[in-house]
């Protein structure tokens, strides 16, 4: 695949995000190893792989939390791998954190309002407008009834919703969801799946890192599999799940 081509052959549209030979080394350990893939406008791409495969590292590289050791990242055709995190956020890249990072001293509403004040350019400019925006996103993620509670009073599932509401309030073009379903029960997972579908339908491109395979099947247009930092398979969910290398990565080599 020619990663530097501007139009992707699958859709004929310009990819929103291109990663080309992206690599991250921590001293001796190669966490992400020459990974290249495109993320097309409007799709949901699931990033899966066993624990320690480098999924969260890859999200950190895209969002700017970590600088890459090698490789290029392009967002809407322009290089972003040398931009600081906040500049990428202003271009329209929002993320949630697997280890949730709520603003504990603030109410849920002010958590989201802060995101609405910043995020992509052209959003709310006053605190009042930001709070109105925030209420909308809290309702959307099912947290409206807890808007005035401090974040440190919220439990795990509600904190996941708060992370999502904060990311959405940034009005992103690209949303990076790092295990937003971990720790949720079956009913809550179905709710979040519905919310994510609605987000996609509103025109946001989504990269999800997820261990809940049921959710991956029902959401992902395409799946990318990482193992030991390397991209070992990509394609639609059914094909990828039957790929022998993927089965081996998850279950180990079958010994005769």
């Amino acid at each position: 695949m020619n990663a530097s081509s501007i139009t992707s052959p699958a859709t004929g549209m310009a990819p929103l995000l291109q990663t080309q030979d992206i690599t991250k080394r921590f001293q001796g350990l190669v966490s992400v190893n020459h990974v290249s893939f495109d993320l097309n406008d409007g799709e949901i791409l699931a990033l899966i792989g066993p624990n320690g495969a480098g999924k969260t590292t890859l999200v950190n590289l895209i969002s700017g939390t970590l600088p890459p050791s090698e490789g290029e990242l392009r967002f809407q055709g322009t290089r972003i791998d040398t931009l600081p995190t906040y500049r990428r956020a202003r271009l329209g890249i929002a993320r949630t954190f697997q280890v949730m990072k709520p603003f504990r001293d603030l109410t849920a509403l002010d958590n989201v309002a802060t995101a609405a004040l910043f995020g992509q350019r052209g959003g709310a400019t006053t605190r009042q407008a930001a709070r109105e925006d925030a209420r909308k996103w809290l309702d959307f993620t099912g947290l409206g009834h807890r808007a005035d509670q401090r974040a440190d009073a919220l439990g795990g599932p509600d904190l996941k919703r708060l992370e999502l509401a904060k990311a959405l309030a940034q009005r992103p073009k690209l949303l990076l969801l790092d295990e937003v379903m971990a720790g949720l029960n079956a009913v809550e997972i179905d709710e979040v799946v519905e919310v994510i579908k609605q987000i996609r339908d509103s025109g946001v491109t989504i990269l999800i890192v997820e261990h809940v395979m049921k959710a991956v099947r029902s959401l992902a247009d395409r799946v990318v599999v990482l193992h030991h930092g390397e991209l070992i398979a990509q394609g639609n969910a059914e094909t990828v799940f039957q790929d022998p290398r993927v089965v081996e990565a998850y279950l180990g080599k079958r010994r005769a």
Binding site: S63, Y86, R95, F103, F118
Partner: peptide
Amino acid sequence: REDEHAAASMGVN
């Protein structure tokens, strides 16, 4: 003050 990484990732310089 609350979380610097989260602040940067939402667009705070």
